[in-house]
Design a protein around this nucleic acid. Structure first.
Lengths: 158, 158
DNA sequence: CCTGAATATTTGAGATTGTCAAGTATTGGG
DNA sequence: CCCAATACTTGACAATCTCAAATATTCAGG
């Protein structure tokens, strides 16, 4: 019997396939809503993502590239465009003159806040679920993602 | 009590926020794996998505644009590149000479199949869950997404 | 102190994705 | 037959992304 179960979960398990399909739908929906919310603030998806990160704290260009999993030269362009619109500024890093800190301006932070509020992926789909169901969903997603959800320690070098 | 529950689910509900956060993580993970799997077959994400759809059945350019939620002229370019690599071909539609059907070639279908197999978002994260848990997750995702997920059934409803 | 490797950022070239407007071919109703 | 609608392509342009090369700065050794 063990072999049968293994084979069933290994390949063409209809349940797993359906879950993957559903997750694909969630991903598509999430993306569409994010792009639309960004567009309503005259931002592209990439710009909204960067601005969202910078609204929390100033970040060196290099680290931003790591967070976005892209080349640093790409971040240069995105920050350029945000800076040209007064949403972001570059500051020197006092402790290392090679580093430039990208930081949201006052206007950038308020744009980021409005963006977050208009991003109601939370409300609409989750409203279908009861409190208990949401807790179950949270636990299942946690287990699915494993423990690595936590931030990697920023103090120690990677 | 009703008012309290309403307020709690309306704004800054920590449970809903955490679920949204987790979904964001799932989205990021899914995307990263998809792009990587595509890249391993020398495809971009957009090309992989189109090829995946075409591996099922030929589709008019117009409908492809609707599925991808983009302009038809964009599909032209993506299919151009896939066609230049012999993965896709354009066929006339016998019933309407305005229409061009994009169809995967033999090689295109086999590439799409290998791509699907290497896309193991299914196996790794879902392996953490038991059969029952996966079923619960499926039902919660279905409810969350509403009924619109289902294909218009030809025979019985879902 | 000086040299050289390593690091942080930018610049420039080029590919891809995406939009929009305009052009061509075909369909179908009046 | 005519004309609006439809399907697709083309061309121009912006944004995102990668890669290689250039610049500035740090830091470790001699």
């Amino acid at each position: 019997m063990g072999i049968l179960i293994l084979m069933a979960t290994q390949r063409t398990d209809p349940l797993a396939l359906e879950v993957v399909e559903l997750i694909g739908t969630v991903v598509a929906r999430y993306h569409a809503e994010y792009e639309q919310a960004a567009a309503e603030h005259a931002l592209t998806g990439a710009q909204a993502r960067v601005l969202g990160l910078l609204s929390m704290e100033p970040i060196p260009m290099r680290r931003m590239a790591q967070k976005l999993k892209c080349e640093p030269s790409n971040v240069t362009g995105i920050v350029d465009r945000l800076e040209a619109r007064g949403l972001v500024e570059r500051r020197p890093d006092p402790s290392d003159r090679r580093v430039k800190l990208a930081a949201a301006t006052q206007e950038g932070r308020s744009t980021a806040r409005r963006l977050r509020e208009s991003l109601d992926f939370a409300r609409e789909p989750l409203a279908q679920l009861t409190e208990v169901e949401r807790a179950v969903l949270r636990d299942l997603l946690r287990r699915m993602l494993g423990e690595e959800t936590a931030e990697p320690p920023s103090a120690a070098g990677s």
